[in-house]
Amino acid sequence: MAFKTIKRPKISIGERFYLKALLGGLVITMKHLVLSIIGKSRSKKELGGSGIGVTMQYPEYRWDKHLPEYYRGYPVLVKGEDGRERCVSCQLCEFICPARAITIKPGEVPADSQWNKVEKAPVEFEIDMLRCIYCGMCQEACPEQAIFMSQGYLLTPTDKKAGVHNKAKLYELGGTKQGLVNKWNAYK
């Protein structure tokens, strides 16, 4: 048989009156209320609550310690451990970005540079943080491991200009990353 008949639960007369369920509900909500006020709500510790309920009072208390590994903050550019800027301005991230937040002006690596083998590097790299939706597509698309989602989330631009992160700012936020990309090393 393709279907199964499920019997409706029988509702007793007491349940039909609904008063018992009502009172039970009122007791439960009251319990929550009292526990919140005395600051003993359930799973308050795990959620890092401060004071009433499980709420963390944000600017005073921060989630930072509890941030999971996979947390996606704002995107940043990183340099390799050898100090080379990893981005080769291939513009893949610019094209994949669903919010069109990234604007790259590609340029050449000067011939006398140690890394002139790389040929290209961004002259300017801007991410408009007012457009960015923190999706992480740029990180996925990047063939050079140059752009990463950081753990930072505290961005409070006071005007639209301040909302745009330029190359210097992105590198400053990103810092250096260890390992991984070795293909441009001199001996190869």
Binding site: H32, S36, I37, G53, V54, T55
Partner: peptide, 13 residues
């Protein structure tokens, strides 16, 4: 406030 206490929140403070 009561609504938020019931939901384990702080409410307007």
């Amino acid at each position: 406030r009561v609504a938020s206490f019931i939901q384990d929140r702080v409410g307007p403070n």
